[in-house]
Simulated scan of single mutants.
Amino acid sequence: MTYLDLSAIGMRYGDNVILDGIDLSVAQGEMHVLLGPSGCGKTTLLRSIAGLVQPDKGAIHLAGLAIEKLHPKDRGIGMVFQHYALFPNMTVRQNLAFGLEQRRLARTVISDKIDAVLDIVSLQDKADSRPRQLSGGQKQRVALARALVLEPSLLLLDEPLSALDAQIRKRLRDELKRIQRRTGLTSILVTHDQDEALSLGDRISVMNKGRIAQTASGPEIFYRPDDLFVAKFIGNANILSAAEFSRLIGRDFDQTAVIHPHMFKIGRASGGSSLFDVAVTVVETVVAGNIVRYVMQSNGIIFNVEAQTAMNRAHLAVGEEATVTIDPSDAHFL
């Protein structure tokens, strides 16, 4: 069931087209991710939904209600930004209470709501701490709790994890997914980080130059991109022209091939007429934890191959000759 519906959203700044006829539907309870490079329009689209900027044209419906003309405070939308914007002189509990107090709720009601949301974000023991006493990850969870405590109809997240270091970011990413699943709150996350998008999104909209290039599940976008932009932006797939792929396997193809590095298998085919053996020379070897990344060359074509490592398993050295196997059914053709 469609919960949020955007129709023909357009916006210009002078001669610059920022949003170019955006159509998007988000289901109730969905975590939807807007993914794309800087300047593609994803944050402007998010701010348009929140009412912080006004599109030049288009309609926005939330739970069947047209909201594009409503003031931000009347849209029932919660928003979490990259920067926490917490009141430094207030405790966590006081920060969460601020918005509820503006609604003139009873103190017991406010207290109960705060206790419930602190439980959701696992910060019960930090209720009386001030922001300077919290880690970056804890501050971001307080910012999330501040949005959740107002019980919004829709939660918007504008790169909320980008200011955190890698370990905290991964941990909080897992927390965010848990919280969204637990609350069932329809959410839209803006990010330029594809790992974050693929980990969190029920569906992902990849944006480019003010347009949505593709909307689909993470696996569909990763393995079946609609065009070359999506193929190049998501993952690190080998993108081989029809001529290159034909030379690689010795069979004519008339489309560009998108092949992820782990789809190549090192060694000869054990059988099957659909499999092709390719003689290669190793150009570069990089061991990265459980993955070894190879740059390989065959018949003048350079491509990437990935394989699993193990403590006592040898890997191919630079200059070594080998054979890799590819099944064209593992490629995606554009």
Rank of each mutant, 00 (worst) to 15 (best):
K126H: 15
V17F: 13
S111K: 15
A63W: 11
V287Y: 12
A116C: 11
T309E: 12
D202F: 10
K126Q: 15
L24T: 06
Q297G: 15
T285W: 14
L144C: 01
T281L: 11
G271H: 05
G99W: 03
I110E: 08
Q94K: 14
Q255Y: 08
T43V: 06
I259F: 14
L35F: 10
A63S: 12
I239R: 11
L161R: 02
L96R: 04
I22P: 09
R75E: 00
L248F: 06
K73V: 07
S111D: 14
K265P: 10
L148N: 00
R181I: 00
P131A: 06
R178S: 00
Y294Q: 11
E196S: 08
A317E: 00
P152S: 05
D5I: 11
R169W: 01
Q167M: 12
A127Y: 03
A116N: 15
T91P: 00
I114P: 00
E175M: 04
A231K: 04
S38Y: 10
I221M: 08
D165S: 03
L100T: 00
A27Y: 07
K73Q: 14
G76N: 01
R203W: 07
Q102T: 01
P72D: 06
R182C: 01
R181P: 03
R268V: 10
V53F: 12
G319A: 09
G137Q: 08
L185D: 05
R178N: 09
K126G: 04
S241R: 09
P131V: 02
N236F: 09
E30D: 04
A66Q: 13
L34K: 05
D5Y: 11
S205V: 05
E159Y: 11
I326G: 02
N236W: 07
R293K: 14
A322M: 01
L198M: 03
E244K: 12
Q194R: 01
G39A: 10
I60M: 14
V324D: 06
E101W: 02
A269T: 07
R171I: 06
L228V: 11
M90H: 03
A237W: 09
T43R: 01
D74T: 09
Q214D: 03
Y3V: 09
S7L: 12
A116K: 13
H192F: 09
S48W: 06
D15K: 15
L198R: 04
A106W: 04
E30M: 05
G289I: 08
R203T: 07
G21D: 08
M90G: 01
L161A: 03
L118I: 08
V206G: 01
M296N: 05
A116W: 13
I9E: 02
D5F: 12
M296Y: 10
A216G: 07
N299I: 12
L4Q: 02
Q180P: 04
F233L: 09
P328I: 05
N238D: 03
I60K: 09
S111H: 13
I179Q: 01
E175Y: 12
A288D: 15
F333C: 04
A237L: 09
V286Q: 15
I204W: 01
L248R: 03
D158V: 01
